Simulated scan of single mutants.
Amino acid sequence: MQFKHLAKNLIKFNLNTTLLAVGIAVSIGVPALAGVLWAKGRPGTLPRNAVEGGTQNRAKLYVCQAIHDKEYTPGKLAAPNFKYCYIPWGGKEYRKTTFRVLTGNNWKWVNFSGKLPNYPVWGGNENNGKYDLYPCRAILNTGYAPGKYYPPNKTCYVSYGGLEYQYKNFFQILTAR
């Protein structure tokens, strides 16, 4: 009997704490804490409100993330079949069939100015969680292509055609509005 009472109070506490934290975040101008949603990807379908990252060969690209070397890494999901999340890693492009897609409409792309902008969207980790990765995009061929921003190198990495391309200037990072 006491356990049920305790469980109900914990649920109430967690709900109240979450609502309070989101309320404080909104009131002081910090993006809502619950706003980042990585939806499980399913080959052949695109989650509602998927975040666009650019175009490649006239096909839309979306922001995705997949596990590589035991850590999430941001990359690109290509229309029209939405089968793979392509991620840049170690000079190569990797094609992943298990992935998540960033959803929501409270994001904006910000030009990189030498430092990480305010409120970047978390996209994964690298080096056993030592560094956070963030979705970025750079112009590749005729349009923007999403990839990963690695803070220690101040570099946006984008994959295409089996290779990884590096951008130290003229790229954008996804942030919360």
Rank of each mutant, 00 (worst) to 15 (best):
L163I: 14
F13H: 14
Y144H: 05
Y94M: 01
K96Y: 09
Y144I: 03
R58Y: 12
G143H: 02
P151C: 00
V30N: 06
Y84P: 12
N111S: 08
L102H: 04
P120F: 08
V101S: 02
R137M: 02
E126H: 13
L10A: 05
A34T: 13
S27R: 12
W122D: 11
G90N: 01
L15K: 12
N125T: 15
E52D: 04
Q56H: 04
P146N: 03
Y149R: 01
R137P: 00
L163R: 15
V121T: 05
Y84I: 12
K168N: 13
V51N: 07
F99Q: 08
A21G: 06
E93H: 09
I139E: 09
A145S: 11
N57S: 13
N128C: 08
Y86I: 14
W107Y: 15
W107G: 03
G54I: 05
F3Y: 15
N16E: 12
G91M: 01
V63Y: 00
K40H: 14
R58L: 11
G161W: 00
L133C: 03
P31M: 00
G129A: 13
N14V: 05
E164M: 08
G75E: 04
V63A: 00
E126A: 13
N111R: 10
Y150W: 13
Q56F: 08
I67N: 09
K154H: 08
I11P: 07
F112V: 06
N128R: 08
F3V: 15
E52V: 00
F171S: 02
F171E: 00
L15D: 09
T142A: 10
Q172D: 00
Y86S: 07
Y131V: 05
Y167P: 02
Q56Y: 03
Y167E: 03
G147V: 09
T98E: 12
F112H: 02
Q56I: 05
M1G: 14
Y157F: 15
V26P: 05
G54K: 01
L20C: 15
Y165I: 02
A34V: 14
V121D: 01
L163H: 15
H5M: 12
K83M: 14
N125S: 13
